[in-house]
């Protein structure tokens, strides 16, 4: 085959993986966010339910299974939020001209947040 018939090099397909992260993160957010926000954000502060004591939470959070699950939930939720927020600004608020900057800030934030999650979880363990 001669060189000129070769297809032009295209960028690696990143978008499908972003959408995969978006959908799995969206499902995990739907499953985990309501109950956790309800407990720590509303029910414990308003005294509806007594908050768990520190020892119990350390035991729960330092379990290897919890660490893996919580890390996956946190990082995929962040990818979901970053992807959706990117398109909110892009389509909703008509900021197409800032596309690259918005993408870098959104996904960069998700990556930083995931690294922070791993660090925080490993300090408890």
């Amino acid at each position: 085959m001669s060189a000129q018939t070769e297809p032009r090099k295209s960028r690696p397909p990143v978008e499908p993986f972003l959408w995969l992260g978006f959908t799995s993160g969206g499902a995990l957010a739907a499953l985990f966010a309501p109950i956790l926000l309800f407990l720590f954000g509303v029910a414990f502060p308003l005294g509806w339910i007594d908050p768990p004591d520190h020892d119990h939470l350390v035991a729960v959070v330092s379990n290897p299974v919890t660490i893996v699950v919580v890390f996956v939930v946190f990082s995929l939720c962040l990818v979901h939020a970053a992807h959706r927020f990117r398109y909110t600004l892009y389509d909703g608020l008509r900021m197409q001209h800032l596309n690259e900057l918005i993408a870098v800030l959104c996904y960069g934030g998700a990556v930083l947040g995931s690294v922070a999650s791993a660090y925080v979880l490993l300090t408890v363990a």
Binding site: F74, C77, A82, R84, F85, G109, S117, V124
Partner: peptide
């Protein structure tokens, strides 16, 4: 679409909680 902001807040809030648990 704006619910994404609050999903991000949920993660930040939980990270603050886990950090506090880790610090005693």
């Amino acid at each position: 679409e704006l619910s994404s902001i609050f999903v991000a807040w949920f993660v930040i809030f939980m990270l603050l909680l886990v950090r506090a648990i880790g610090q005693g």
